[in-house]
């Protein structure tokens, strides 16, 4: 086992300092060390996107990032998206448009959509579908997810 490394990561606006094994994956760090279990794990091959979080402003699959790679970085997880009781427009959209069923893929899906709206505030349906190609949903058939992202885009434009 390699020596533990010290990592300092700001997550949802809070600073965390831990000693971790270099091999610790960011998703396990978030879930098992910090206790933020909103991001999920749905595969081990970087396909499903259930573990998606924002790392320094970019959506990443946190199962394919080492915690040591996030040292000094800023992370946003699903738990940090709402401002107190005020839901983010994307969260609202997913709720209003029934964009989730079992909910397992939802945190990752919402953060990929969040990435999209940062880059393209007024996306077409095709752009939305392409933007969540790295996130599998087995329940919804994606149609209500597209509706949810459109809802959020409209709301954020106002």
């Amino acid at each position: 086992m390699g020596p533990k490394k010290r990592v300092s990561i700001r997550i949802n606006g809070v600073n965390y300092l831990h000693e971790v094994e270099p091999r610790l994956l960011l998703i396990h760090y978030l879930r098992d060390v910090v206790g933020l279990t909103g991001s999920h794990i749905g595969c081990e091959t970087s396909v499903c996107g259930a573990c998606t979080v924002m790392l320094d402003g970019a959506a990443v699959k946190s199962c394919t990032v080492l915690a040591v790679q996030a040292d000094g970085a800023e992370v946003l997880t699903i738990e940090g998206l709402a401002q107190g009781e005020d839901l983010h427009p994307l969260q609202e959209g997913f709720w209003e448009c029934h964009g989730l069923q079992c909910g397992y893929c939802t945190p990752g899906m919402i953060l990929s959509a969040y990435q999209l709206l940062l880059r393209r505030p007024d996306p077409t349906e095709e752009e939305i579908r392409r933007a969540v190609d790295g996130n599998l949903c087995r329940c919804t058939g994606y149609q209500h997810i597209v509706d949810a992202v459109q809802y959020a885009a409209r709301k954020m434009k106002k």
């Binding site: 996107g49 959506a59 394919t64 990435q115 190609d133 790295g134």
Partner: peptide, 9 residues
């Protein structure tokens, strides 16, 4: 290439 998350990283 891949998907957004892969291209970001």
């Amino acid at each position: 290439i891949g998907d957004v998350q892969v291209r970001n990283r």
